[in-house]
């Protein structure tokens, strides 16, 4: 019997499912709230009840990332690893790594000031999609269809001027059906996939109301998902793909703390069970 610790900051259905599966598999399972956990430079692993392996499941990316760095400092095995979380949490780092590994991904332009981004956009031509480098659930993702929209969006960014607002991530608008594909990988193995259909706009995030529908994993999807997972450093990931009318499947995002409650209802394989088994085997190796 092993002990699995699920670190959370907001206890969602997914964390409860993971806890239940771990218990049903005969393992000891604990839920630990990151918000009330204190760590210092003299801390030792024995001071805490982290068990044999931790699944980091914070909904706040920065909280989860920094908590993961503490766990690795204490030599506690954690999924996902800090390096994986760090890369997947930043769209620019992730896109660069996908491209570096020859994984088809949308053409993306990076600028480091609003003036430079505007100059590039006028050179490349409208539309492009602007995305915040940090963020999820489609927040701040907007198609820039003309100069007026661009100027309005850039002006707001210049006013708010948070550190990440200075990084301009502009991506080609992909011609595709009004849906994308989410593949969940566990240890570089695709275990389930779904189509996420747009609820009207061009975004396909389930958090925004996109309708999930089971998707059969084709050989092409499998190959791309495996390659993407390996490129990021493995672990438990959500690989997002679009069906480009000209180029075929392309990977536009890899997610770190993957949400799966919708897909779990229709998937053939038991997603939380696979995650727990992978975590246990990860530390047995």
């Amino acid at each position: 019997m092993s002990k699995v610790c699920i670190v959370f900051d907001r206890l969602r259905t997914e964390e409860k499912m993971l806890h239940k599966e771990a218990s049903e598999l005969g393992h000891d399972a604990v839920l630990l709230d990151a918000k009330i956990t204190q760590i210092n430079t003299d801390s030792n692993r024995e001071d805490y009840d982290f068990g044999d392996v931790v699944l980091e499941r914070c909904v706040s990316y920065f909280r989860g990332l920094h908590f993961t760095s503490s766990l690795e400092f204490l030599n506690v095995p954690v999924l996902n690893k800090f390096e994986v979380a760090n890369i997947c949490g930043n769209k620019m780092f992730m896109t660069l790594l996908l491209k570096k590994n020859n994984i088809p991904t949308p053409k993306t332009y990076f600028s480091f000031s609003s003036d430079s981004a505007a100059e590039n956009l006028e050179k490349v031509g409208f539309p492009l999609v602007i995305k915040p480098v940090i963020g999820s659930w489609g927040r701040g993702v907007m198609p820039l269809k003309d100069k007026d929209t661009m100027e309005a969006v850039f002006e707001i960014r210049d006013i708010t001027d948070s550190p990440h607002d200075r990084i301009y991530y502009l991506q080609e608008l992909i011609k595709r059906p009004p849906r994308d594909i989410r593949v969940i990988t566990v240890g570089d193995e695709p275990i389930a996939a779904m189509y996420r259909k747009s609820s009207g706009g061009f975004k396909t995030n389930v958090a925004l109301g996109a309708e999930p529908e089971i998707c059969e994993i084709t050989k092409e999807m499998e190959d791309l998902a495996v390659k993407s997972s390996k490129a990021m450093g493995g672990g438990i990931l959500g690989i997002d793909m679009m069906e480009d009318e000209d180029k075929g499947l392309i990977v536009h995002e890899v997610n770190n703390t993957v949400e799966f409650k919708g897909l779990a209802k229709v998937a053939q394989r038991n997603i939380p069970k696979e995650m727990i088994e992978f975590a246990i085997n990860h530390v047995r190796k």
Binding site: D9, R10, S60, Y61, P132, G135, S136, W137, N256, T257
Partner: peptide, 25 residues
Amino acid sequence: YEISKKDGANVELKQAETVGEDWGE
């Protein structure tokens, strides 16, 4: 509200955090 303590039927609540810029997958 977030459940901050629970001991049988005794429950303590605190204001839940609001959605942050970095929330999500």
